[in-house]
């Protein structure tokens, strides 16, 4: 094994390709989520996925078919809670995610176990990505980024000032729904590919990094995407040379980028 041809391994190539696409995807959604104070929605929806998978296993169906609609519904629930009931976003996420975990634990206990460990089913690893998952990651990223691009102006308006956006005739509820549905689908599918740690980190860290230095909204998105993708590249490379787990290394690199951006802002 040579140190410098690490890209000759198929699993490393797949990690870089799928990782980059998922990073870009998470960064784009992350900008809107962080600004709407829904940063933790990734973690929340992961918990909901756990519960939803348990329900799927409980009814003995392909868990994903049950889990996907349930997770989408839960994300709409989070939105509904923040919209109608005057509940803060973080509290809404907390409520829904606690419920998801509780249902999962309950079902695991009541049914006295399953045929496969739920958690391992749930959490992917960036080093263990199949060819199908690479294709899926690219398709998912392309689809979500196209939808975001088409509704870009509406998303910006609603994120900036919901009241004004509504007065300007934008269907803010529909835009909100679209955002959380995209997030739900992304979290669920990306989590299976690269693991929840990476997904929730990439939803938050690159955006916060971009907010330190970017001079405008489009630039924020661009900087977030670059920060996310660069974290993945450097993280994978470093993890290879240092013999560290890749997912955790990527998160650390992402954090280092944030610290750099923060310091730059301070000294500027």
């Amino acid at each position: 094994m040579s140190m410098f041809n690490f890209l000759s391994y198929g699993f490393m190539q797949r990690a870089v390709i799928a990782g980059s696409f998922i990073a870009a995807l998470c960064a784009v959604l992350g900008v809107f989520l962080v600004l709407r104070r829904l940063s933790l929605i990734g973690d929340g929806l992961a918990h909901v996925t756990f519960g939803s998978l348990a329900i799927g296993l409980f009814f003995n169906t392909t868990p994903l078919y049950v889990a996907l609609p349930l997770v989408v519904l839960s994300s709409l629930g989070i939105m509904k809670l923040t919209e109608a009931q005057h509940i803060f976003g973080d509290a809404a996420i907390g409520i829904v995610s606690a419920l998801g975990i509780a249902i999962g634990v309950l079902l695991v206990s009541v049914t006295k176990g399953f045929n496969i460990d739920l958690f391992s089913y749930l959490f992917g690893n960036i080093l263990a990505i199949s060819k199908t998952e690479v294709a899926m990651s690219i398709a998912l990223s392309a689809a979500v980024i196209i939808v975001v691009a088409l509704f870009y102006q509406d998303l910006v308006a609603v994120t900036f000032d919901e009241e004004c956006a509504q007065a300007e005739g934008i269907n803010t509820k529909a835009v909100n729904k679209a955002l959380v549905i995209l997030t739900a689908v992304t979290v669920m599918l990306a989590m299976k590919v690269v693991g929840i740690m990476l997904v929730s980190a990439l939803l938050i860290l690159p955006t916060v990094t971009a907010l330190q230095i970017a001079k405008g909204f489009k630039m924020t998105i661009l900087v977030a995407v670059i920060a996310a993708v660069v974290s993945v590249w450097i993280g994978i490379m470093l993890s290879f040379f240092l013999d560290w787990p890749s997912g955790a290394t990527i998160v650390l690199v992402s954090f280092v980028l944030l610290v750099c951006a923060f310091s730059y802002r301070k000294i500027r």
Partner: peptide, 13 residues
């Protein structure tokens, strides 16, 4: 624990 890329590379080799 998570596997490291070098673990996997060694395995492949």
């Amino acid at each position: 624990a998570e596997p490291t890329p070098r673990n996997l590379a060694e395995l492949v080799d």
